[in-house]
Design a protein around this nucleic acid. Structure first.
Lengths: 161, 161
DNA sequence: GTATCTGCAAATGCTTTGCACACCC
DNA sequence: GGGTGTGCAAAGCATTTGCAGATAC
């Protein structure tokens, strides 16, 4: 089977420099102004091995002496998502979590015990979805597949279930 | 392909009476007390052809002269979800939407234009998910596949995109 | 009678927004 | 200098919770 798994993260399809350069293009095209925070948050999400939420992003910014108010973090995340630089996923009650959009198209496995998010790629599922959308005369905009599991470690620790 | 589609709703695998009888069993086993509202809300969700949110459920209860405060609706929905009578899906900003659990296992297609939710069944995707969970030594608890689309009608009306 | 269920209002948690000031071009 | 970005505090919105009274058993 052509399943690709990766416990760390799915391959990125673009370099950080390329992503940052695209950000500059959008900012310039929209006649907006450069903001160090915007670039920093985008870089942070690009480099993060985990899916951060807004609070965590604000906390890391603070730790890196790049302090940013939580409202700015929200505004910047909204901007970055609107213009396709990041995507968000809902996995728990602690708000949306973000990841860089410049990643291979993938799905998420979420452990209900420890919250760990694993990513995987499956082309068959992707193809199937396109077929389904097409058969309904729908234009597929985005898809979201989440598997909620109890991981091996949490099963052994009898964390839940 | 073995895709099953249904523009109205996916077949239910259990009668309302059977579901209500199971509710009575749980209530009795947990030494709780019968509540007409709990039964009414469960019946309402069973019979609804659309995915209702809490506000809508409260409004329909009111219209049927079975008035229920919004907090009771939330408490009852939480109860029904905890004990596996209903399941919830997140489709928009208007809160979780509920459906009866006694339905064939299925996925959702959500139109970003009109909000219409279509359900579909696909055994290949289901099998694939089980394989994936198994290959990661994970116990699959639940899965959630949402396709966000622009439906044919909304494309013609150029509602979005 | 006693524990659960309900309605109300207040609280919660994530997110958005209004406003004044700071900063980029 | 004019408009965009930011920080702060307040507001929004779905949901939860504390409490007192109502109801089921």
């Amino acid at each position: 089977m052509e399943l690709k798994l990766n416990n760390q993260e799915i391959k990125k399809v673009e370099s950080l420099n390329s992503v940052l350069s695209k950000l500059k293009q959008v900012v310039s095209a929209k006649k907006l102004k450069t903001s160090k925070q915007r670039e920093d948050i985008l870089s942070l999400i690009y480099n993060s091995k985990v899916h951060l939420n807004s609070e965590e992003i604000a906390a890391i910014m603070k730790k890196n002496n790049k302090d940013s108010s939580i409202s700015s973090v929200y505004r910047i995340l909204q901007f970055l998502e609107t213009y396709g630089f990041v995507t968000s996923i809902d996995v728990d009650k602690n708000g949306k979590r973000y990841e860089i959009a410049a990643k291979e198209h993938h799905y998420h496995i979420i452990c209900l015990g420890c919250g760990k998010i694993t990513e995987f790629i499956d082309d068959e599922i992707k193809d199937k979805q396109l077929q389904i959308a097409h058969s309904l005369q729908c234009q597929l905009v985005s898809d979201n597949l989440r598997l909620f599991v109890v991981c091996n470690k949490c099963q052994k620790e009898q964390k839940i279930y």
